[in-house]
Design a protein around this nucleic acid. Structure first.
Lengths: 218, 218
DNA sequence: CGGCGTCTCACCCGCCCGGGGGGACCCACG
DNA sequence: CGTGGGTCCCCCCGGGCGGGTGAGACGCCG
């Protein structure tokens, strides 16, 4: 066993910090919490002062974004590895996180043993992503290979229909949709009819309901 | 000092449970954590078996809703007080929570001292709401006193308008809405016009988008 | 080459819907 | 007691929308 991983916790909830500390306490020989911060400024002071191995950062700290902090930390002369913690199991966030320079993206459902193992993996140079997310990312990658990448493809919508639907959800009229997509409104009506048939609805309001409930758009 | 408040923790994140335990540990004489559950079923077993004073429940447990659990617990022969914990500082959730039978709605930013005090207040029969939320809710106290709890009340919708909107989201036509509510469709149109004005939209599709995005209906 | 699906556009029809009036009743509030 | 808001209903009107049908252009695949 090597020297323990030195970790700084960054989260605006005292509760979460206490939870992390408590969870990591039994593994003190492998992971050592050397500091805690509840906001971005003290987090920066702490990291520059202590030069920890890893900063364990919440992605959503009230108003401030953990992603921004991640970028800031990654730009330091002696950057720590940054592992982001989140409750959002959304693929998109993972991409942003890794692009922001994070070495890991874990969900808050992890337990102590798992967390310690992941932190050690990060120290070994690996990039760790929560397993459930990793699975989904793999699945969506597979979909990409099959060519299904626009929202609604799983319902048999064509790309164009998906575009029309997104504007419909945005509240645009047929005329406005036509202008936006540089089409005649008759064309838009054609797409809408196909859309209604595939979504099994009879009007635009119901189509919006189906689309939003399905999670195709936000 | 009376006997300590007996609390059961319900949260799908082991970390949060650990954090709560750690935060409450220094106050063992006032609050005692007698059990922890990571899912709804074990939570039910625990509560029925231990009959705790308070169940401290996360509103958002992965897929399951803490609100549903709250309703279930409130329907038990010997119901515990239920205090919901959340990261969402949205008035609407508070309404739903209280309607679901909760005795409290606290944000996860609370510290140990605060939490202990709140739990004791709950045991005293009070209904506790996070102070920042309480302030905002006080603004609409008049509505609360009149018992206006329907979805959309926070946007100034009347109860009738809310009913119409819900059927609109369900994809019904004006005629169908009128039949369902036993009204003339001219009346429905009246309500819809008021609705469009309040939601700042011009047609039903946009109204559906606003309603669903706001979380008024699912 | 000849289907097949997608995307594009057109014409016609019927009517629901949005927008503008107005007016009735009831009840709470001042 | 007046006033204001909520609920309910009515009229008219024009346009947007849903529904049907048809067709030309393009790319794909067997």
């Amino acid at each position: 066993m090597e020297t323990p991983v030195r970790v700084v916790l960054v989260d605006d909830h005292p509760m979460v910090r206490a939870g992390l500390s408590a969870m990591l306490a039994p593994f003190a020989r492998r992971v050592r919490v050397v500091g805690q911060a509840g906001d971005v400024t003290t987090a920066l002071e702490l990291v520059t002062g202590l030069s920890p191995d890893v900063a364990l950062v919440d992605v959503r700290m009230g108003t401030a974004s953990g992603l921004d902090l991640c970028r800031t930390l990654a730009a330091l002369p002696v950057p720590p590895r940054v592992v982001l913690l989140s409750v959002y199991d959304d693929e998109q966030y993972v991409y942003e996180a890794l692009r922001a320079g994070a070495s890991g993206y874990l969900l808050k459902r992890v337990d102590g043993e798992e967390l310690v193992r992941r932190l050690e993996e990060v120290m070994g140079g690996e990039t760790v992503v929560d397993v459930t997310l990793a699975g989904r990312i793999a699945a969506s990658a597979a979909r990409l290979h099959r060519g299904e990448f626009w929202p609604g493809a799983h319902l048999g919508l064509t790309q164009r229909e998906s575009e029309v639907l997104s504007l419909l959800v945005a509240g645009l009229s047929n005329r406005a949709i036509a202008d936006r997509l540089v089409l005649g409104q008759e064309t838009v009506k054609s797409h809408l009819r196909a859309l209604y048939r595939k979504l099994d609805v009879t009007d635009r309001a119901a189509a919006v309901t189906v689309a939003l409930r399905d999670g195709m758009f936000r």
